[in-house]
């Protein structure tokens, strides 16, 4: 089985606009229509994230941080503005091209883990590779490597129901890492965990960042955000403050 072909006709002129940044957004707007009323979830967000950064996005609920993360995660497209990821202009791509970007450039970690209950840890981690179109043997090898990276080598054949909450989230992190994405997006990754287990996950994130991964964590918890090296505060759909703390 051949790998899914890259759907992008390379466009050098467009890519140069990203200036080598991993992530660059320019005046991102997202507007929803609620009845006849326009709701502006994002009002012109411009930010840049470089390779190997560890960024937290903080803000109260309704601030637009989830909307921002969905846009960065290529799950959604902006109403207005431009977004480049790894040199590709994601804001103007179609559905299948966005799916390709989510598969290759982005690893998601969800608050509710979102693991397939009937599949083993290994099967769950293999999933992105299945959609990438890799042959079974190669999938297996890569998935095992990813599970070793999160110290779950001895839990590969367990189903989610046989794992603790922390272990489930580590499986989810392995799934996010398995395709060697440009960036890992975590949405409230400790929200469903007790504080000890949450701390454990944050330690894992620290280590992954030291090993060269780019991380973006969305949270409303100060402790979680404090683990990052840069915090972007969002309020009313705009960047309120962008602080580097380490």
């Amino acid at each position: 089985m051949a790998e899914t072909n890259n759907p992008f006709p390379e466009n050098a002129a467009r890519e140069s606009a990203a200036n080598g940044k991993l992530i660059q957004t320019e005046d991102l707007w997202k507007t929803y229509l609620m009845g006849s009323e326009e709701i502006h979830a994002l009002r012109g967000v411009s930010l840049e994230i470089e390779r190997n950064e560890y960024v937290a996005i903080m803000g109260p609920s309704g601030s637009g941080k989830s909307t921002l993360m969905n846009l960065i995660g290529c799950l959604d497209t902006p109403t207005r503005g431009s977004y480049w990821i790894n040199g590709k202009l994601a804001s103007e791509l179609d559905d299948d091209q966005l799916a390709y970007l989510r598969n290759r450039e982005i690893g998601f970690v969800f608050q509710t883990f979102n693991l397939l209950p009937r599949a083993t840890a290994l099967g769950n981690v293999e999933l992105p590779l299945v959609y990438r179109g890799l042959p079974a043997a190669e999938r297996r090898e890569k998935a095992q490597d990813a599970l070793r990276m999160v110290e779950l080598a001895d839990r590969m054949d367990h189903r989610p129901s046989e794992l603790s909450g922390g272990e489930r989230q580590r499986v989810a992190i392995a799934r996010a890492l398995v395709n060697s994405p440009s960036i890992v997006l975590a949405d409230e990754p400790t929200g469903n965990l007790d504080s000890a287990t949450g701390a454990e996950i944050m330690n894992l994130f620290n280590r992954l960042n030291r090993e060269g991964n780019t991380l973006l964590v969305v949270t409303h918890e100060r402790d979680v955000a404090a683990c990052a090296r840069r915090i972007i505060h969002i309020r009313d759909g705009m960047v309120e403050r962008d602080e580097r703390i380490r």
């Binding site: 799950l75 559905d95 299948d96 989510r102 598969n103 969800f110 979102n114 992105p128 959609y131 395709n179």
Partner: peptide, 16 residues
């Protein structure tokens, strides 16, 4: 529904 969402998040296309 969540399963479809998750599959799409990790790279499933509509065709998949």
């Amino acid at each position: 529904t969540w399963e479809v969402g998750m599959r799409k998040a990790v790279g499933a296309t509509r065709a998949d």
